[in-house]
């Protein structure tokens, strides 16, 4: 058995793990927040002010982009578990989508 090529999964796995960690702690309460009972915190000026703060912007970017890397990673491996599609194609679609969302949300957060 000769040694094989180095995988690039350390990169995607780290993003997956960061997204999974963030989602484990924050997604359930975030999902509860806009259920109608608690509206005051979601006033336009307030959320806009949060976004205008550099730290707030960073948090929002992370909250959007990292869970998408998490989802892309699990979807890619889930599809290969289900023997669906060619690996290269599903790889490009899953991680490509996460990459595009990262770019677009980064643009909205920092430059729009």
């Amino acid at each position: 058995m000769k040694s094989a090529r180095r995988s690039n999964e350390p990169l995607t796995w780290s993003l997956f793990a960061a997204g999974g960690l963030l989602a484990a702690f924050l997604t359930p309460p975030l999902l509860l927040a806009p259920l109608g009972l608690l509206g005051e915190g979601l006033r336009f000026e307030r959320v806009r002010a949060f976004l205008d703060h550099p730290l707030g912007a960073l948090i929002l970017w992370a909250l959007i982009a990292l869970p998408l890397w998490h989802a892309a990673h699990r979807l890619y491996h889930g599809l290969s578990d289900l023997k669906v599609g060619a690996h290269r194609l599903t790889y490009a679609l899953c991680y490509g989508f996460a990459f595009l969302v990262t770019l677009y949300s980064g643009y909205l957060v920092w430059f729009a």
């Binding site: 040694s3 094989a4 180095r6 995988s7 999964e9 350390p10 796995w13 491996h77 578990d81």
Partner: peptide
């Protein structure tokens, strides 16, 4: 390390 780092090393695990 080369064994671990490969696609079929630790990265084959889900």
């Amino acid at each position: 390390l080369p064994t671990m780092n490969a696609e079929d090393g630790v990265w084959g695990c889900t």
